[in-house]
Write a protein that binds this DNA or RNA. Structure first.
Lengths: 343, 343
DNA sequence: AACAAAAATTTACGCGCGTAAAGTTTTTCG
DNA sequence: CGAAAAACTTTACGCGCGTAAATTTTTGTT
């Protein structure tokens, strides 16, 4: 262990008995040097811990090993979980993920992309804010940097999109709710920030009509990403003012549902399937906390392991092929019904 | 707008009519050049958008403008929120925060510090894993990089510690619970990962004895960071097996409490202060979701705005003074009682 | 053993910028 | 107005590494 300290690749090459260009080659791809050479380098590496200066490396490579991960709202555990998945897969593949959250603010998202550009990333995994994104800025960014979109679909943006099959999933829970009780109304924000929400609403309407029920939208105000608060405040209002057209409420997402459950509790409405229950409430996403609400929330899961895996795999494909030519691909993963006690 | 594209500082200096060394000086500190010069540079900046190559800059500066932010578990919205605060304050001060999560894994934490070293950060804001941290690795890191610890206190580590006043806060809620009903038992994990938990237990015991009650610890198994699940599973067990010594349960933190509330619901125990209630449950932290549980969770808030502010301010002090000499400082912020319906 | 192919070495330049030194211009102020 | 001080310009070097070209060594095959 430990001779003197190594200051740069020159010195490390000296102590390992290999020339600097070959050492450089090794660090860029260990398999590109002869086995015996590789062993000598790795032996020296044990004695002298040396790591190439990341700034010098990145300055001279046209592209770095950085991968940007951008999510719209990290305080949402759903995004935290998916970010964790993405992060790990990037690391395992030898890349350096860098995590950013737009915190629901358009300007932050734009700034992040700007900063990301300067990092010369090999690729970016981007979950955009959605409706409030600066489309022009996103387009310009995607033209310069290989980008895979996930979660929120935006037309003609990025090399590929990976997401949740909102249509399949929403149909699934609509049919379940209709089959097991009163047809649901759809509780949502009037002007949703997220394309998923729009798709869910549309599917809800289609399925209800297909089953011969009238779609009933309960659209509430709210612009922020503080969905629980919206669900709670507006939930209280619609419950206490008797604005709910049915006793079954399908919320556009779990976070709204979590707030709504809180409202139901406060206004004394029992939620569940039991005889003494006044309401059934369902959500969408299988949010990490939906398991622990009272009652536990019936919902539809997003297969975020698959989404994470596919997003990263797709990005690596794009990076390796270096192509921006081929058709934009789309991949959606089906949701599963998570039956709990709330509906 | 837009003449030709600027490739480097040389070219930008040319079009702005200023020499490159002066331009370099400007970017390092705009106030260090004459006002007329500054205006000429900024005028050129409007026409030619140019930004210094971040890698070249960082290679040549001994320290960068990077600030590392490390939290133990980002899927916990509490940490997501505090990270957001820290991030913003760093940006506003002209630094580049880089966010990392240890995801509850010791090796990840160590790896993060290793990676952080390579980024030559001006400073680091570190919330360690706690008990499971690799102390040696942390010490070595703090010796090399100006580091302010927050959330989890570890003795003799870092330039300063900023955190929550667990003693004051726990005393506050213990007294409240004793004053308004049966003295609480203390529900916690037997071998908590977090120093805060140990402090809370200790204070609970002290306060109870001070008030003439016998401290009653309900210690459950569980090693993971999946606190809700532990609270839920073990909550079910202690409730159904009648292992609770009193009908008032003070949980070591809100995430445990959230799981416990779910367990109480499932086992049919009403929670709250009302006559028909079988249990009172309180938490600690004012977790973002504690407001939306059923019933809403009575808890103690952490003043994380203040903690974030103080952490960043302290780090900047250390960076500016460049000192590692002076005494390690500690700053704790008091918690506030958040009275809701669960207790 | 001979020889072509593969791999390593030597040499050299460039990336974009920080920064020092010496000389020149501009500003400040008595 | 004149001199000192401040700010700027010119010139030059260094940071640590990627990478190309030419040369030498090693490898594997017949």
């Amino acid at each position: 262990m430990g001779g003197r300290k190594i200051r740069n690749m020159e010195e490390f090459a000296a102590v390992s008995g290999i020339s600097r260009p070959t050492v450089s080659k090794y660090f860029n791809d260990p398999a590109s040097v002869r086995a015996t050479t590789r062993q000598r380098i790795e032996a020296a590496l044990e004695d002298y811990d040396y790591r190439p200066n990341i700034f010098a490396v990145n300055q001279n490579r046209r592209l770095t090993k950085n991968i940007g991960i951008v999510v719209p709202y990290l305080a949402d555990p759903f995004f935290a979980e998916i970010a964790r998945n993405l992060e790990r897969r990037c690391i395992d593949a030898g890349f350096s993920p860098i995590l950013f959250s737009s915190h629901g603010v358009t300007d932050y998202e734009t700034d992040i992309l700007e900063a990301l550009r300067a990092l010369k990333p090999a690729g970016v995994l981007l979950a955009p804010l959605g409706r409030s994104s600066d489309k022009k800025a996103l387009e310009a960014f995607c033209r310069d940097v290989p980008t895979v979109l996930f979660d929120s679909y935006i037309k003609d943006l990025g090399e590929a999109f990976v997401g949740h099959n909102n249509a399949q999933a929403t149909a699934l829970i609509c049919e379940y709710l209709c089959r097991t009780g009163a047809p649901p109304c759809f509780f949502e924000m009037r002007t949703p920030t997220n394309p998923n929400a729009i798709r869910r609403r549309q599917t809800y309407c289609d399925v209800m009509e297909g089953l011969g029920h009238e779609p009933r939208l309960v659209q509430v105000e709210g612009e922020s990403w503080d969905f629980e608060e919206v669900g709670y405040q507006e939930g209280k209002r619609v419950i206490s003012e008797n604005l709910l057209p049915t006793d079954t409420v399908l919320c556009s997402n779990d976070r709204l549902a979590i707030g709504f459950l809180s409202a139901a509790y406060e206004t004394g409405r029992h939620v569940g399937r039991g005889a003494n229950c006044a309401l059934r409430v369902a959500g969408h996403d299988n949010h990490p906390f939906s398991k622990y609400t009272s009652p536990p929330l019936t919902t539809i899961s997003q297969d975020y392991t698959a989404i994470a895996h596919q997003s990263v795999a797709t990005l690596f494909d794009v990076i390796e092929s270096g192509s921006t030519e081929n058709q934009q691909t789309q991949k959606l993963f089906d949701g599963q019904l998570i039956m709990r006690e709330s509906a």
